[in-house]
Design a binder for these strands. Structure first.
Lengths: 112, 112
DNA sequence: ATGTCATATGACAACTGTGTCACTTGAGCT
DNA sequence: AGCTCAAGTGACACAGTTGTCATATGACAT
């Protein structure tokens, strides 16, 4: 049984959207792309000091959810941030964190 | 004493922020508050058809992370949404979901 | 076609979050 | 005080996500 809402807000995809961003590795990737523009997987691995497999797994998630876009360039695959959605989002969060970063880091249940 | 970061973006609190929103119940609470304004716990429970304990647990998280604010009113405790942060955020996400909702629902690794 | 570089995929153990239980605290009443 | 309604807390099992392993695919060059 599904509870149909009037405004047709669907909490499930909303939650999944945030879940896609709720990971330090994926956030690091997004921050790197937002700072440096388009990068391939090797550059991202180097920039973050991480294994290729790990980065690829997380890029797959980011791309599938529309947070980054991908395109081939020879042997490489170049990833760019979805500027329309992610940039304004991160700006809002940055402001929020100036007040609440300390709280978030100690919120039990969200211990990473 | 604030840790002011110029380019120093901290992925951990960022990820935790999104983690706080990455839950269907917490999203439902936020959507309800955004639609109906301030509500107490009993009203939220009734509105969502959920147990009080469950709702309280999630409200605690939301309040601690600064996504909602709380205040006493007699026996009740009234919760309101953090309009400054949450409303613009959800607007951006709503737009994104028009394109990517289907993807998010089938993104493996994010199966809820 | 074979080699090699660049990246993606599949599977699985370990850790983390979620939801439910029983219980406690707090506020207002008589 | 004791009673009752309103909401918060602690603990634990289950289910979900994460990161690492080994392996597979794709593209370019010789």
């Amino acid at each position: 049984m599904t509870t149909v809402s009037l405004e047709l807000v669907q909490p499930k995809p909303q939650a999944l959207f945030f879940q896609a961003m709720a990971n330090p590795v994926r956030m690091q990737i997004l921050n790197l792309l937002r700072e440096k523009g388009s990068l391939n997987v090797t550059q991202i691995c180097a920039g973050l000091g991480m294994e290729q497999t790990h980065v690829s797994h997380n890029l797959r998630c980011l791309a599938f959810c529309g947070l980054v876009t991908a395109s081939r360039a020879g042997k490489s695959r170049v990833y760019s941030i979805n500027a329309e959605t992610v940039l304004p989002l991160l700006k809002i969060v940055d402001v929020h964190l100036r007040k609440y970063a300390a709280n978030l880091l100690t919120c039990e249940g969200l211990e990473r």
